[in-house]
Simulated assay, not measured.
Amino acid sequence: MDAVEVIKGGGPVVLGMPHTGTYVPQDVRAKLNERGRGLDDTDWNIHKLYDGLLPGATVVRAKFHRYVIDANRDPSGASLYPGQNTTGLVPLTDFDGNDIWDQPPSGVEIEHRRETWHAPYHAALKAELERVHALHGVVVLYDCHSIRSRIPFLFDGTLPDFNIGTNEGTTCAPVIAQTVEDVCGAARGYTSISNGRFKGGWTTRHYGIPEKGFHAIQMELAQSTYMQESAPWPYLHERADETRVPLADLLGRIDRLAREGVLG
């Protein structure tokens, strides 16, 4: 099993998908408990939701599950959200705070997983960002995520539909953030927020260097916008088709901004 799937495009936008994979090696699966084997914290159906929304976009998708190792975490293990409940490089609990392992991984095993899964994903992502940057002089990484809309262990109340993350405006040009905020804010029947509970994961923060022409923005969607938020996690086509409209709009606008040379 390859760690990553890459679909090369000729446009200036790269779609990162670190959490849609469901592959778990047998030796890892054997150490998960029953709850862990349910893989509840997958970004279910995200690759389906974004499929075809932006012709010419490059897609870099992790094929392994985040319980093997989380491709959107700092490889050093440093927390993205110090002082808040979250999950680590190899999660020990699910998003509800429940244990997911019968046999938690050792430090040696975590390092092996980092080399086998995490590192190849980021090598592929870095290569595509550099390739696209060489083509256009600029590249925009749009990191695609989703999560259940109600998870008391992680946040209070109900999550907004569109959660935009730019690490407080540091990972992309202001015009990109403003464009995405404008589209999401104008989408009738949806709610949105910027740099709320989700400010952008390690991927967004690591690759977003706008002064060098590398821009990054994260979109954390509430899963209620396109699917059922409980097993077996079905994709709701009618609801998803509605959500694809503003997503296609904002991706198209980002693409045009990059092509027009206004990002620097």
Score class of each variant (00 low, 15 high):
residue 149 S to Y: 05
residue 92 L to H: 03
residue 96 D to N: 11
residue 226 Y to K: 13
residue 35 R to V: 13
residue 163 N to M: 09
residue 172 C to D: 02
residue 115 E to K: 15
residue 246 P to A: 08
residue 65 H to I: 14
residue 97 G to T: 08
residue 251 L to H: 08
residue 164 I to Y: 11
residue 159 L to N: 04
residue 157 G to P: 01
residue 259 R to W: 02
residue 157 G to M: 11
residue 91 P to V: 04
residue 139 V to W: 10
residue 82 P to N: 06
residue 120 P to C: 10
residue 243 T to D: 06
residue 131 R to L: 04
residue 125 L to E: 06
residue 54 L to I: 12
residue 156 D to W: 04
residue 137 G to P: 15
residue 170 T to P: 01
residue 199 K to D: 01
residue 88 G to L: 03
residue 81 Y to E: 12
residue 239 R to K: 13
residue 231 A to W: 05
residue 85 N to I: 04
residue 174 P to G: 10
residue 42 T to Q: 12
residue 64 F to G: 00
residue 255 D to P: 01
residue 172 C to V: 10
residue 135 L to M: 15
residue 121 Y to S: 04
residue 189 G to Y: 09
residue 145 H to N: 02
residue 69 I to Y: 01
residue 60 V to A: 12
residue 125 L to T: 05
residue 5 E to S: 14
residue 105 P to R: 01
residue 118 H to V: 00
residue 231 A to D: 14
residue 176 I to F: 05
residue 169 G to P: 06
residue 50 Y to Q: 03
residue 195 N to G: 07
residue 27 D to V: 06
residue 161 D to L: 01
residue 173 A to F: 02
residue 67 Y to C: 00
residue 127 A to W: 06
residue 20 T to P: 14
residue 254 I to Y: 04
residue 193 I to P: 00
residue 80 L to V: 00
residue 234 P to I: 13
residue 208 G to N: 07
residue 81 Y to I: 00
residue 72 N to C: 09
residue 82 P to L: 00
residue 151 I to T: 15
residue 190 Y to T: 10
residue 201 G to K: 05
residue 224 S to Q: 12
residue 135 L to E: 15
residue 33 N to C: 12
residue 106 S to Y: 04
residue 237 H to I: 04
residue 69 I to Q: 07
residue 209 I to S: 02
residue 92 L to R: 13
residue 76 S to M: 05
residue 217 I to Y: 01
residue 51 D to S: 13
residue 11 G to A: 03
residue 71 A to R: 07
residue 126 K to I: 00
residue 198 F to M: 11
residue 194 S to N: 07
residue 191 T to A: 10
residue 131 R to S: 04
residue 211 E to G: 09
residue 242 E to S: 11
residue 32 L to C: 09
residue 172 C to M: 09
residue 155 F to A: 07
residue 49 L to N: 00
residue 129 L to R: 08
residue 153 F to D: 11
residue 247 L to K: 09
residue 29 R to F: 08
residue 59 V to S: 08
residue 35 R to D: 12
residue 110 I to V: 14
residue 124 A to M: 12
residue 25 P to A: 12
residue 60 V to D: 09
residue 136 H to K: 13
residue 150 R to I: 15
residue 3 A to W: 06
residue 232 P to F: 11
residue 52 G to R: 02
residue 260 E to R: 11
residue 103 Q to W: 03
residue 8 K to Q: 14
residue 2 D to I: 10
residue 4 V to D: 07
residue 90 V to G: 00
residue 160 P to V: 06
residue 226 Y to L: 00
residue 103 Q to R: 14
residue 53 L to D: 02
residue 8 K to C: 09
residue 139 V to Y: 10
residue 76 S to A: 11
residue 195 N to L: 07
residue 33 N to A: 08
residue 237 H to S: 10
residue 66 R to L: 06
residue 104 P to Q: 04
residue 47 H to M: 00
residue 141 L to V: 08
residue 80 L to S: 11
residue 47 H to Y: 06
residue 77 G to K: 09
residue 161 D to Q: 13
residue 12 P to V: 02
residue 26 Q to N: 10
residue 85 N to G: 07
residue 62 A to M: 07
residue 172 C to R: 07
residue 65 H to Y: 04
residue 210 P to D: 08
residue 222 A to I: 04
residue 44 W to I: 08
residue 175 V to R: 15
residue 153 F to M: 05
residue 128 E to N: 08
residue 222 A to G: 15
residue 251 L to M: 09
residue 46 I to S: 10
residue 237 H to W: 02
residue 14 V to S: 05
residue 25 P to K: 13
